[in-house]
Deep mutational scan, measured.
Amino acid sequence: MSIQHFRVALIPFFAAFCLPVFAHPETLVKVKDAEDQLGARVGYIELDLNSGKILESFRPEERFPMMSTFKVLLCGAVLSRVDAGQEQLGRRIHYSQNDLVEYSPVTEKHLTDGMTVRELCSAAITMSDNTAANLLLTTIGGPKELTAFLHNMGDHVTRLDRWEPELNEAIPNDERDTTMPAAMATTLRKLLTGELLTLASRQQLIDWMEADKVAGPLLRSALPAGWFIADKSGAGERGSRGIIAALGPDGKPSRIVVIYTTGSQATMDERNRQIAEIGASLIKHW
Rank of each mutant, 00 (worst) to 15 (best):
E26W: 15
K30N: 06
E35A: 14
D36F: 14
L38V: 10
G39V: 12
R41T: 09
V42E: 00
G43D: 02
G43H: 00
Y44G: 01
Y44S: 01
I45H: 05
D48W: 02
D48V: 05
S51E: 12
G52K: 06
K53I: 14
I54E: 14
L55R: 11
R59I: 02
R63H: 08
R63T: 12
P65C: 03
S68K: 00
F70M: 08
F70Q: 08
K71M: 00
V72E: 04
L74A: 14
A77D: 07
V78P: 01
S80L: 13
D83P: 02
G85Q: 07
G85M: 07
Q86D: 13
E87D: 14
L89R: 04
L89W: 13
G90T: 12
R91K: 11
R91P: 01
H94M: 07
Y95V: 06
T107P: 01
K109H: 10
M115R: 05
T116G: 04
L120C: 06
C121T: 03
S122H: 10
T126P: 03
M127E: 10
D129E: 03
D129C: 02
N130L: 01
T131R: 03
A133R: 01
N134W: 01
T139R: 14
I140Y: 08
G141K: 15
P143R: 04
T147G: 07
N152Y: 12
V157D: 06
T158S: 09
L160W: 00
D161H: 12
E164I: 00
E164W: 01
P165Y: 05
N168P: 02
A170Q: 13
P172K: 11
E175L: 11
E175V: 11
T178M: 03
T178K: 03
T186H: 12
R189F: 15
R189P: 02
L192M: 12
E195C: 13
E195P: 15
L196V: 11
T198G: 07
A200S: 09
Q204K: 07
L205G: 00
I206G: 10
I206D: 04
W208H: 03
M209P: 00
D212F: 02
G216W: 07
L218S: 03
L219V: 09
S221I: 14
L223R: 06
P224Q: 15
A225Y: 06
G226P: 09
A235Q: 05
G236H: 02
G236L: 02
G239L: 01
G239S: 05
G242C: 13
I243T: 04
I244W: 00
L247V: 07
K252Y: 13
R255N: 02
V257K: 00
V257S: 04
V258K: 01
V258Q: 01
I259K: 00
Q265D: 13
A266V: 08
E270P: 04
Q274G: 11
I275K: 02
A276K: 15
E277A: 06
E277I: 08
I278P: 00
G279K: 01
S281H: 09
I283S: 15
